[in-house]
Computed example of a mutant assay.
Amino acid sequence: MFIDSNKYEAAVRELLSGKGKKYLAVAFWGKGAEALLSEYFNHEVKIICNLTSGGTNPEVIKHIRKNIPNIHDVRQLDNLHAKVLIGEDSAIIGSANLSSNGLCLEGSELQGWEEAGYRVSDPEQLKKISEWYSRMWNASSSISNEDIEASRQKWKQRRGLRPTNTTQTGRSFSLTSFSPKEMEDREIYIVIYREDISDEARLAYQNYERNLTKKSTLQKSNIPPIYEDWPQLPKSAQLIDIFYGKRGGISCHGVYTRIHEMKFKHKDGSKGHLCICRKDLQIMGLSFNTTEMASFAKALKPHIETIWGSPYAIGDTGKYISYANALRIVTNNPLQVR
């Protein structure tokens, strides 16, 4: 029997609620899967997942292993991409993962994605499916706490690169191009500072560039953003650079990514630290040039004081905040730590 998107969840629930043991080989798992399985705690369940590729939320697997008593065993298979659920008298073979997929979508983010599957009840076909599952089970391995920990970073990276369902009619990025939910878990931050770098920091960078390129940097405009004594700034993330003046004015200098760090000495002999950045031309695939920078600063200005004082803005002399949490302030949505 063919199953379309409108009937997929109901078909899965029906299979899980049926009598007998359940055998699941579903590659990728996300939020909501643990709640779904816990509803059917009277039936023994075995699970094979793909934990190492970054498409599975490790917190969900951790919860399933620890808190759902009917889960007989959860194992991992690195090259698993199948989505097969086997009950006593039927099986479902389809495209849908359990609440998440290889694109790292979760919850409401799955809306608009079409899924399809097929329910099999023919005994001969069920036998072949069960034999296939046995082979996958024998090829799989147990999951340790170390495996869960190792998968967290991969999940975070894949989650940050997930696609969005938002259709962009323009070609440029603005403060509210995306919703807080769409920006959640993405490695994009707003960096706000009120003081320029010191002369020692500027000189240290000029010496660094001179040694690197064999050319002298004389003009301030030629020096990219250098964040001084701010080593905790997120690495491998895009940083939207905002200068917040003493009189309340703000300006946006672009979006940057850390590429290097170096140490130098202040005049008093104390050690200094520089985060050296490259300039990016896009955010989320959308243009972010001089015009967009000015518009971004203008739209951000009414909210800058609230963002600066937010408990989710990290730092003392300067602040950085995840873009998702900044958007929650701008759109009056509840904040959460990311």
Results as ranks from 00 to 15, higher is better:
residue 74 V to F: 00
residue 97 N to K: 02
residue 85 L to K: 04
residue 173 F to I: 10
residue 89 D to L: 11
residue 292 E to H: 06
residue 213 T to K: 08
residue 197 I to W: 08
residue 324 A to D: 15
residue 291 T to L: 12
residue 156 K to T: 12
residue 61 I to A: 05
residue 198 S to A: 08
residue 327 L to D: 03
residue 48 I to E: 00
residue 179 S to I: 05
residue 317 T to F: 08
residue 58 P to C: 11
residue 225 P to L: 05
residue 300 L to G: 03
residue 226 I to L: 15
residue 181 K to M: 12
residue 127 K to N: 12
residue 4 D to S: 11
residue 321 I to G: 00
residue 104 C to Y: 01
residue 11 A to S: 14
residue 249 G to R: 04
residue 114 E to M: 10
residue 70 N to M: 08
residue 180 P to V: 07
residue 110 L to N: 09
residue 243 F to Q: 09
residue 294 A to C: 05
residue 303 H to F: 11
residue 329 I to Q: 09
residue 262 M to T: 15
residue 126 L to S: 05
residue 11 A to P: 00
residue 9 E to S: 09
residue 9 E to R: 11
residue 288 F to G: 01
residue 131 E to P: 02
residue 336 Q to R: 11
residue 321 I to C: 00
residue 216 S to E: 14
residue 267 K to W: 05
residue 105 L to D: 00
residue 56 T to E: 01
residue 50 N to K: 07
residue 259 I to F: 08
residue 314 I to W: 03
residue 152 R to K: 15
residue 165 N to M: 10
residue 62 K to L: 08
residue 225 P to H: 03
residue 211 N to T: 14
residue 76 Q to M: 11
residue 254 G to I: 07
residue 191 V to H: 02
residue 41 F to E: 13
residue 279 K to W: 02
residue 36 L to W: 03
residue 99 S to C: 11
residue 100 S to A: 14
residue 12 V to K: 02
